[in-house]
Design a protein around this nucleic acid. Sequence first.
DNA 1: TATGAATGAGTTTTCATTCAT
DNA 2: TATGAATGAAAACTCATTCAT
Lengths: 213, 213, 213, 213
Amino acid sequence: MPVKSPRKVASRVPVNGSGAAKARTEKSNTILRAAIEVFARAGYFNAKVAEVARAAGVADGTVYLYFKNKDDLLISIFNTMMDVFIAQAQTELAAIDDPREQLRHFARLHLSSLEQDRDLAIVFQVELRQSTKFMEQFSETKLAEYMKILREILERGQKRNVFRAQPNSKLVAKVIFGALDEMATNWVLSHNNYRLTSMVEPLMNIFLNGIGK
Amino acid sequence: MPVKSPRKVASRVPVNGSGAAKARTEKSNTILRAAIEVFARAGYFNAKVAEVARAAGVADGTVYLYFKNKDDLLISIFNTMMDVFIAQAQTELAAIDDPREQLRHFARLHLSSLEQDRDLAIVFQVELRQSTKFMEQFSETKLAEYMKILREILERGQKRNVFRAQPNSKLVAKVIFGALDEMATNWVLSHNNYRLTSMVEPLMNIFLNGIGK
Amino acid sequence: MPVKSPRKVASRVPVNGSGAAKARTEKSNTILRAAIEVFARAGYFNAKVAEVARAAGVADGTVYLYFKNKDDLLISIFNTMMDVFIAQAQTELAAIDDPREQLRHFARLHLSSLEQDRDLAIVFQVELRQSTKFMEQFSETKLAEYMKILREILERGQKRNVFRAQPNSKLVAKVIFGALDEMATNWVLSHNNYRLTSMVEPLMNIFLNGIGK
Amino acid sequence: MPVKSPRKVASRVPVNGSGAAKARTEKSNTILRAAIEVFARAGYFNAKVAEVARAAGVADGTVYLYFKNKDDLLISIFNTMMDVFIAQAQTELAAIDDPREQLRHFARLHLSSLEQDRDLAIVFQVELRQSTKFMEQFSETKLAEYMKILREILERGQKRNVFRAQPNSKLVAKVIFGALDEMATNWVLSHNNYRLTSMVEPLMNIFLNGIGK
DNA sequence: TATGAATGAGTTTTCATTCAT
DNA sequence: TATGAATGAAAACTCATTCAT
């Protein structure tokens, strides 16, 4: 979900076109950023491949040298950005000892990644939900990696005895993801008129303590 | 989100086509049910109005006597089913005193409504997320009523001193909705191979007690 | 191959769209005639479906109500016209007793059918040869019926002892068809500057007597 | 129509690209053979220039160093192979005295040339018939030379009094070509499950003696 | 109300060809 | 000569919607 700022992505991330591992070229990244911008502005279905090409400064046909089709653009945005998020999360979490702090950091990373890239946030929270086909793939590959990181934080906390053992980590991970996702969607639909990351502390409060008295 | 079983809906719910209050006729309901079935099977974008008409046993043009356009079919499904859910929730919650039990009942109603109507669940969890336009309307009207019910349960609990006063009810409501929504989506994408309502108790556990120790 | 004049066809022939028996409607025939004219003028590959629609005085989409796709137009022209030719041949041959006269009549009918409809001749002799796929179907269904009529004439003549028994009727039929086809193609490519039917007698002379002395 | 086996062609034939006389280089021949193979397999219209290039082991652009465009590939195949056939026919016919034997040899050469090169046969009998433009050129240049050879055999036979003077040699040549062409097309479409050259004797029988009694 | 034949706008994608290296 | 990345023109087809009956 979360993602670094565009330019950084372009320069440091090796990514997958349609899932196949293939080094992102300079041009490929340019096209992907153009797609994010155009999809965010016009919506995936209204967006024309020709618009993406123009925004990227290439000919229409060039898009198809790097992406199989329009769908592949959308999927590649997801895969590319998830890779960035996952890599960043893994690196940064490794430096944190307290599972509660890890969880807080994870939530902050999720939300700040989207807050820093409004176009990407729109694509992730709105456009990416469009096809069943996508949703089904979505819930497997990259999202599974995302969930794994979250579950590992929770399981580490259970072993450390700072998180309760029940309900199980898988369910808790879904609840936390559901909440973060809902926060992000609300922020996007509210036209970003508040700091998305300001949600981190209240969320942690709920997750850690519950609402009961 | 939640919704009664098809036939009941058809026979007892007055609903809005594209927001305009208009009494649902017998035929109008037939078309709406056909749309749910077709959209669930084929996906909203792939579904053809002609298919919906055929499934409903009417001519193509007849669909347009009851619904403004294809989009209106989708929106009407949402509005109709939300009205059913809201009415049912209000009625049933009125009979419960303990806010914790109200919350539990609300969650159960949300999930069981979807569990009882697989086609509708697909439409709600997958197809309905498709257009920004829809998502924006979505987050206003009916969803606001849904959220209001949830917030009222929470606020009643705060007054009764069974729920904590912080974080505020608006945020908590979103978190709970986000979690329920995520559970439902997971269930749909997993091809319904478990009881969705079995999630109610674990969720209540998390919401009420948190995951911290 | 041969075919009656356009208007007659439209009014009296029940024909097949893409092989499926379906009564040709008035509009269907209008579109088919338009296709023959446009294909003859522009060539099948250069011809645009939009051109065919305009020539027929209908909207682009209407073409697709009657024909599955552009290919189906070409195949339907072939099937329709072959049906006309075959029906006419069978009727007229039944009234002739002498196998030699039957053969002469068959050749005349083949060539005059094309001579009477220049556009159709172009489509049959040039455009129809374009795809392997077509060629393969071509050599089966309707062409087999055409060949059968020709073989029956030959076999009748063998029984009557006016034609030699060797080589066998199947081969002779192919030779005669090959010759008629070559005559027609030459005539089309020569821009029709002579009477195609003037070839009938010389051809009969060769077929019946051979070139040897 | 007929053609020698690939390698011989490649090594001994000077041919014309789009009619312009230009010596065939080694690489040029490699590309031409690749084109025959690809066109036979995929069909001219489906075949991609890139496929031809790959089959020839050269870069896409290299094809354009030797051939003006995709059409030129097809035309060059025709011209090259016709040159081979014509040269071979002239040489071999010079050694035969009896016009009937010359005719027999010519027919055998036509059919065996195709029988020996299945890919080429497909290209000649199916793919080459595709464009009016080609058909029109086709009926002029090389085919005229082919016809001339055939006519000369016939005229020699008329002078020698072994062939009848009527119908004239031009028409008879067309009939014979039409029959040979039809035999070849039938053989290609029947997937070559018999010896094409086995047709020579029965054809000679028909041509020389006619079918009349 | 109901029909369903007709409309026609609208866009992805392919691939022959070019040209800077 | 040879390369192959980049170009960009070009059209079939779909399907939501209308409207005469």
